[in-house]
Amino acid sequence: MRAALAAVCLLIAGCGAGTSAPEPLSATAVKPVPHEFTEITAPPQSASDCDAEVTLRPGALPSPGAMPSGSAMAAIVANGRVRIGVDQDTYLFGFRNPATGQLEGFDIDIAREIARALFGDPDKIELRSVTAAERMTSLREKEVDLIVHTFSATCERRREIDFSAVYYRATQRILVPKGSTIRSKDDLGGKRVCVVKGATSAARLFSLPVEVTVIGVTNWTDCLAALQQGDVDAISSDDTILLGLKAQDRNLEMVGDSIGSEAYVVGVAKDTPDLVRFVNGVLERIRVDGTWQRIYNERLGVLGPAQAPPAPRYSD
């Protein structure tokens, strides 16, 4: 027995002979980048051969649920709900409340007022989350009936779709970490600036007198993550969008004067003038009866004293 135990001990000792502790693993921390993080190397197509803010004059609003026979509104009512393309990543305008899981914001409330006018019920609505780059396509392919998504009126877009009257005005500015050397658009030379693909923000960056590296992502929260991780030096968008990002990170600040202005409109499919007039009728009502002001105070009060609702410009 003693001989057997000795043999086992020798075997165990032999197995461990000549071995050493494994070398410690070394790995470089990987810094994640946003989905579809790409450089935009050319300005988006632009056109200035129209007055993008002019729209059709509204008629009298029909009673909810009693839309004119054969109209685009009657077809929507027959479907039992209005499908509206909105954002779910822009705090204050269109975002998903983590406490309730519901989409909320200024744009969402405008969309619900349209549903109220159609059905008498603001909940007869299907809110479809679309990215900025998907807004035009979703209208053209009839995936949605309308777009209410911080959607700026431009002549280039007007070639493919129609617009309502302007329901909100914003200005494009710059968002940076506190302590950044970037204090105005003149300091953006050689810097990496984040925008969302499909938004109008990129065009003005290419028109600056300094050369800027423009980085495109899918959503504004992707820009926020990129700025926090140091993948970009600044974000440039409408002040309303930037203030929503700043509210999510108090270490950020807006700097510089306005780079340009934006006019938010409801996007409507081409060749549906009755629907354009109807939406304009809804916007006219909420301007006059105080609903616009109430929505502003509730959703955008953090931006400061309420501005007056934009005055519409009608073609006939």
Rank of each mutant, 00 (worst) to 15 (best):
M1L: 13
A4G: 04
L5V: 07
L5Q: 12
C9I: 15
A17I: 04
T28P: 00
T28G: 02
T28L: 11
H35D: 14
A47H: 10
A52F: 03
A52T: 00
L56C: 02
R57A: 14
A66N: 12
M67G: 06
G70P: 10
M73F: 03
I76G: 03
G80H: 14
V82L: 14
G85T: 05
D89C: 04
Y91L: 15
L92C: 09
F93M: 06
A99P: 08
T100I: 06
T100R: 08
E104A: 11
E113H: 03
D121H: 10
D123G: 15
E126A: 15
T131N: 15
T131P: 02
R135Q: 13
T137N: 15
S138Q: 06
V144I: 10
S152V: 06
A153I: 00
C155K: 01
S164V: 01
S164W: 04
S164N: 11
V166P: 05
Y167P: 08
Y168T: 00
I174M: 10
P177A: 05
G179E: 09
K185D: 15
D187F: 09
R192F: 13
V196H: 02
V196I: 11
T200H: 04
S201W: 03
F206H: 06
S207K: 12
G216R: 01
V217K: 00
T218M: 09
T221D: 13
D222W: 05
D222V: 04
Q228H: 11
D233G: 05
I235S: 07
L252D: 06
D257C: 00
K270M: 05
V276W: 08
V279L: 04
N280F: 02
E284H: 05
R285S: 12
R287Q: 11
D289I: 03
G290Q: 14
W292P: 01
R294M: 11
R294K: 15
R294F: 04
R294E: 12
R294Y: 01
N297G: 07
G301T: 12
Q307M: 12
P309K: 00
P310W: 11
D316R: 13
